[in-house]
Amino acid sequence: MSRIQPRLMRTEDAAEYCGGLSVSSFMKDVAPHCRKLNPSGRRVAWDRRDLDAWIDWLAGLQPQPSGEAEPQPERVNPLDALL
């Protein structure tokens, strides 16, 4: 029987997922870069995709995650400069 990997994790599980960090290290080093979710209204959960983004940043595979969507720059048509 296969085990389903949850997308949302409790803090303890998220710390373990990020390399066996202590909860205090997770909260100091990882949590500021991830969105804190509250699916049940009481318990905090962490999205596995945010954790993966942090791990990818740590490995140098992508820019540092911010925990929030980056504002997109306004798109400019270069031909407008000719007018």
Rank of each mutant, 00 (worst) to 15 (best):
M27P: 00
E12S: 12
A14T: 02
D56F: 03
H33Q: 06
H33E: 06
I4K: 12
V76N: 07
R48T: 13
S66M: 15
I4A: 14
C34W: 03
R10K: 08
S2L: 14
L79E: 04
L79S: 02
E16C: 11
I4M: 11
A15Q: 04
Q62K: 06
A81V: 08
D47M: 14
M9C: 09
P65N: 11
D47I: 15
A81L: 04
R42K: 10
I55V: 09
R49S: 14
D52E: 13
D29W: 03
Q62V: 11
V76W: 12
W57M: 09
V23L: 03
L21V: 02
R42Y: 06
D80W: 04
Q62M: 14
R42Q: 11
L37Y: 12
L61M: 03
D47Y: 12
A53P: 00
A81E: 04
V76C: 09
A15G: 07
R7L: 15
A45H: 08
G67L: 15
A45D: 08
D56S: 05
A14V: 08
V23F: 04
R49P: 06
S40E: 05
A15Y: 05
S2A: 14
S22Q: 10
E70T: 15
M9H: 06
S24F: 05
L51R: 01
Q62R: 11
V23C: 05
M27L: 12
A53V: 02
P73C: 14
R35H: 08
L37K: 07
R35S: 10
D50C: 13
S40L: 01
W57K: 02
W57P: 03
A31Q: 09
V30M: 04
C18Q: 00
N38T: 10
D50W: 10
K28S: 01
V30D: 00
D52Q: 09
L21Q: 00
L21G: 00
S40I: 02
L83A: 11
W57I: 06
L83M: 08
A14K: 00
S24I: 06
H33W: 03
G19M: 11
G41D: 10
S24T: 09
P39A: 10
S24A: 08
M27E: 05
D56Q: 02
Q64C: 13
C34V: 14
G20E: 03
F26W: 00
E70D: 15
S40N: 04
R48K: 10
Y17R: 08
A45W: 09
R43V: 07
L51M: 07
P6L: 13
A69M: 15
W46C: 10
E16R: 04
Q72G: 12
V76P: 08
V76H: 11
A69T: 15
E74K: 10
S24V: 07
A81P: 04
A59E: 02
M9Y: 05
R43C: 07
F26V: 01
P39Y: 06
P6S: 14
G20W: 06
I55D: 00
C34H: 02
P6K: 13
V30Q: 00
E16P: 01
A14P: 02
Q64A: 13
A81F: 01
M1T: 15
W54S: 08
L83H: 08
P63Q: 10
A15T: 07
L58D: 00
G67Q: 09
